[in-house]
Design a protein around this nucleic acid. Sequence first.
DNA 1: ATGATTGGATAGTGCCACTCTCCGAACGGG
DNA 2: CCCGTTCGGAGAGTGGCACTATCCAATCAT
Lengths: 211, 211
Amino acid sequence: MRLAELSERSGVSITTIKYYLREGLLPPGERVSATQAEYDEEHLRRLRLARALVQVGRVPVATARKVLAAVEDESVDQLTRLGTAVSALPHGPAPSGADGAVDAARRTAEEVQRRLGWRPVPGNPAHGMLVSALATLIRLGYPCDVDQLLPYGRAAAAIAGHEIALIEEFGAPTTQLEAAVALTVLYEPVLLSLRRLAQAEEATRRFGTQT
Amino acid sequence: MRLAELSERSGVSITTIKYYLREGLLPPGERVSATQAEYDEEHLRRLRLARALVQVGRVPVATARKVLAAVEDESVDQLTRLGTAVSALPHGPAPSGADGAVDAARRTAEEVQRRLGWRPVPGNPAHGMLVSALATLIRLGYPCDVDQLLPYGRAAAAIAGHEIALIEEFGAPTTQLEAAVALTVLYEPVLLSLRRLAQAEEATRRFGTQT
DNA sequence: ATGATTGGATAGTGCCACTCTCCGAACGGG
DNA sequence: CCCGTTCGGAGAGTGGCACTATCCAATCAT
């Protein structure tokens, strides 16, 4: 198909697709002549995934390029590709450094992981994200001790189990990786909005009966 | 205290504090002379909360102003203030409109809430956020039927129950509202990073034994 | 008295996701 | 074969946003 059709079927404007091509989010189409290129269903899927990452997942364009590159890199094994792709996703700023709050947060984070029976993964950026968020809570004076966090951890474990099982159902390796990335990013707003809805439900149940 | 001390104790640069004052994130200090103003501990708390919302919660400055204004608006009752504050938080784009995916997403969202026993809250922006995210998943061809979503909903309910109970422990109404906003926003990265850590744990457990 | 500091206002910076505009080559109906 | 249309590509420009650099006059400390 041509650029115009790709644009129509994906709902992404032609100029934006050109921009994505320039930024490497999308591989170039198969050149059929000096000024014409042909795109296939694979391009359409990639474009939709890229669009979802950028718009829904708020992943910066440069980051999305790395993620998609890792998904397609067939030179390494599945688990490494998955790790590379997920590590490239945004994680917020790393903890500032020498700070009492950061030290306390780091200790809490490690204790939580130990209590949940998770093996520590030193290089995981999600760990830095957790420490940074906990340090902020501590600085604001809000409680975030281990007992507070365990319910979150158990909820996360339940969800993750579900997700990994779901991903296993996708056959081809690249399809699995695409699914892993898509589900990791796109279920974030689902989880957060369900949490807010649950909060609203619980708040009205406790604080008031009307409206 | 003076601006300089407020800056030092909060870790926010003087120019940024001035910017926040201009944007209404922080009430002006008490004018002690034509060119001097005095700030108190309340300003420090507000500043730290605003900073956390903007930096960690990625809340736009204009949005943070509305949220903080709702928290301090003592002219209405607690639950309304809470609703206003949380509604002002960012929710991503609303669903596009006339689209088969959006319709299916809306039906799924309502069914999930029904199955979880949550009363439908029509005006809640979190609902739009959920529908929008589900529509994106549907467009990408990933499963997000009711059975997939129920574990997320149950996890969200468990977490929300914990949080509302925690908020009730804060005495003063304004303090409670501040806590509600802070916990809603600042626990988001905590929850998401725990989910990613849980995914990593589960993935290594199933897909490989080393690294 | 006087140099430093303070609070306030205005304009500018840097980043980022697009988007506008132009170009020359190719397609295709007549 | 002709010519208006469409195509892909490339560089510069736009708008939004979170700051930030600079300046100014009043005031404080010595």
